[in-house]
């Protein structure tokens, strides 16, 4: 497409000076026949170039001396700013990571401490319970022993009384039956009988 347009423009370039020649019945102050650009005899054409060199020189000076260093400064400042921001972000991330690690360590430490405290409390409670139970057992054992002694004493007492009652009753019965008492014989018989029953 560009090529066809270029060809068309070239054709028009060739054709148009001819048309313009017809049109230039009112030649301007400077134009002869044909393209004004090709009229190098025209002093204005040369003057145009001289002025252009002056203006372009000024443009080059202003660009090289003021404009481009300023733009470069702006771009450099932005680059530095972006790099600085990235570094700051990096540092902040490292700080955050460190804080996170510290936090995790603190949590682990706290958990371990709590576990230890729980263990200690449990052991202490268990030991306390054990000693209390032991004391209670000892007390109960002492009470049982005392009670047993008491019972034994009471039984012995009761047994002693039983021998007396049995001797007296047997003596009285003998006396009633045969008219005379044999206290010594009865006592011996009772003793024998009691011994035979294992109650002495």
């Amino acid at each position: 497409m560009k090529k066809t347009i270029r060809i068309a423009t070239l054709l028009s370039l060739v054709a148009l000076p001819a048309m313009a020649q017809v049109a230039s019945e009112h030649p301007g102050a400077t134009s002869s026949a044909g393209m004004p650009q090709l009229d190098f005899g025209n002093p204005w054409t040369i003057a145009q170039v001289v002025w252009m060199l002056i203006i372009f020189g000024a443009l080059y000076y202003v660009m090289a001396r003021y404009a481009l260093p300023q733009v470069e400064g702006v771009l450099a400042a932005r680059r530095a700013r972006i790099e600085g921001d990235l570094e700051t972000a990096q540092a902040a991330k490292q700080r955050a990571d460190a804080a996170m690690a510290e936090h995790q360590a603190a949590t682990a430490r706290a958990r371990a401490e709590a576990q230890a405290a729980i263990n200690a409390a449990t052991q202490k409670a268990q030991a306390e319970a054990a000693t209390r139970a032991e004391a209670l057992n000892a007390k109960l054992a002492a009470q049982i022993a005392a009670a047993e002694t008491q019972i034994a004493t009471a039984r012995d007492n009761a047994m002693g009384a039983l021998r007396q009652v049995a001797t007296d009753t047997a003596d009285a019965l003998v006396t009633r039956l045969i008219g005379q008492g044999d206290s010594a014989g009865v006592a011996a018989a009772v003793d024998r009988e009691l011994a035979a029953r294992g109650q002495a």
């Binding site: 313009a20 230039s24 019945e25 009112h26 044909g34 393209m35 004004p36 204005w44």
Partner: peptide, 14 residues
């Protein structure tokens, strides 16, 4: 101007 097309006077220096 008239019947012709004046396409080149635009390039004249004034």
């Amino acid at each position: 101007e008239g019947k012709a097309i004046d396409a080149l006077s635009q390039f004249e220096l004034v």
